[in-house]
Amino acid sequence: MSALPSSTGGAAPFDSTRIEQDEGFRRRPNAADAGKWQGLANHPKVTRPYRPRVAERLYLPLVGGLLVTLRHFVRNLFGKLPTIQYPEERRNYSHRFRGHHILTTRPDGSVRCVACYLCAQACPAECIHIEAAEHPDVNIEKYPVVYEIDMLRCIFCGYCVDACPEEAIIMSNNYDMAYFHRDQTIAGKAELMKPFTFDENLLGYRPRYPEEDAKRAKMRREAFNLVEAARQAKAKEEAARAAAV
């Protein structure tokens, strides 16, 4: 480990030739090398640098390689391809997938969020913007008038979901997001509330999962049925009213 020749200091242009030709580069290792690190390694033999054998010099192992690729080819031709044919086929991501955010709703359809600002504080990208207002119901106190997530800033880390004490923000398993204009990219309250569903298959990263909490899953199913029934009743009423008019 020899010293470098003294250099001229900061302003001099870089000169790679002035670094001496170390014999440390391009030197073939030999038997003496094993001894240098004795005490660190108990290798039973010294591995010489790789010397190709005769068969390798004659390119014979290439035949083995070609057989490997042939095997893959035949398997793919007559068997199942590993390719997922998006958009017709979609990959089954787990129900922990961190996709598009969802603002959950109460059974009456209003947003569950109480504008506590924990998600905005936890977000490393500072992409959540909330403006709070007073909620008429004294038990709920606050609700967000404005709840916006800048989808282009979001890094989909799930910290907002971890931070929320109300299970008001969760994530779905939807990853189909692409925008043409910058003004489409801020997801407001309406857009975030729209995909909320009690259907577990469409949900992603959230605090509690069905396998951990069967009781909760049952409650969600019942809530789903209730909401569905209410929606259908409303739809029937609307239809009746429209028919009467």
Partner: peptide, 17 residues
């Protein structure tokens, strides 16, 4: 022309884009 959000976007998200 197209913004694909995600960090990183899944390959399906990119293909959607």
């Amino acid at each position: 022309d197209v913004y694909v959000p995600g960090c990183p976007p899944t390959p399906e998200g990119l293909m959607y884009g």
